[in-house]
């Protein structure tokens, strides 16, 4: 298969057919910010942060690079005034939900986003779907899923599965950008199968240290 040659940030890049613009950029060490992307998971196109400017046959458009396939002779710009503005507003919107998420704070600094721009709806979940997709695609346990639709969409642990699988895995806690996956799990544990961890500890006293991540104190930013 022949390589496809495209330009990213003024640099000629070779990519294989079927790759996405994001993959092509990452392979060249060009950084594009992402939140819902994970190398082990199928592209989701959920957070829109990896938006880039693509110039193709004289037309400029804004595309989500994690799902946009590479094409011959396109010119990609990962930073431009408009791209930066799009990312800034996206970060501001996400911060209405998770104002103290470390990744968002870092992005907010980079793009000059105002964390107080939009009215707070502190759901702490930015619906990136990492936990849901990781549990489905990598672990194949489906202990956590999406519930409801549109603005009311949220993640929810299925108690029947979670009580069996989650304590020994907890891998979604580390990939969650906001620590909400952990909070949601602990909440469903408290509601649906309280006291289960004591039982597990009693049965398997020589377990390696549990992987519950201490929730970081909220950084002081105003």
């Amino acid at each position: 298969m022949t390589d496809i040659v495209l330009t990213i940030d003024g640099k000629e890049v070779k990519a294989k057919a079927g790759m996405t613009v994001l993959q092509a950029a990452q392979q060249e060490g060009i950084h594009i910010p992402t939140l819902c992307h994970h190398e082990k998971l199928e592209a989701f196109g959920g957070c829109r942060l990896c938006m880039v400017e693509v110039e193709s046959r004289g037309w400029t458009s804004y595309v989500v690079s994690c799902v946009y396939p590479v094409a011959k002779d396109i010119v990609v710009r990962t930073r431009s005034e408009k791209v930066d503005k799009i990312r800034k507003v996206l970060v501001e919107e996400l911060m209405a939900h998770a104002p103290d998420a470390p990744e968002l704070i870092k992005l907010a600094e980079e793009y000059g986003a105002d964390r107080n721009r939009f009215e707070r709806d502190a759901s702490f979940c930015i619906v990136c779907g990492l936990c849901v997709r990781y549990c489905n695609e990598v672990k194949q346990k489906n202990a956590v899923g999406f519930i409801d639709n549109g603005a009311r969409r949220e993640i929810s642990f299925i108690p029947e599965v979670a009580r069996k699988e989650c304590w020994d895995c907890q891998e979604c806690f580390t990939i969650c950008p906001t620590s909400y996956a952990q909070a949601a799990y602990l909440l469903s544990e408290a509601l649906a199968f309280p006291g289960q961890r004591k039982k597990i500890k009693a049965e398997k006293p020589l377990q390696p240290k549990s992987r519950v991540i201490p929730i970081m104190p909220a950084p002081v930013t105003t």
Binding site: V132, C135, N136, N142, A143, V144, G145, F146, I147, D148, N149, S156, I158, E160, V161
Partner: peptide, 13 residues
């Protein structure tokens, strides 16, 4: 089908 997916569909529509 995983139960989580059935819940997802049933709550979506």
């Amino acid at each position: 089908v995983p139960f989580a997916q059935v819940m997802q569909i049933a709550s979506f529509y």
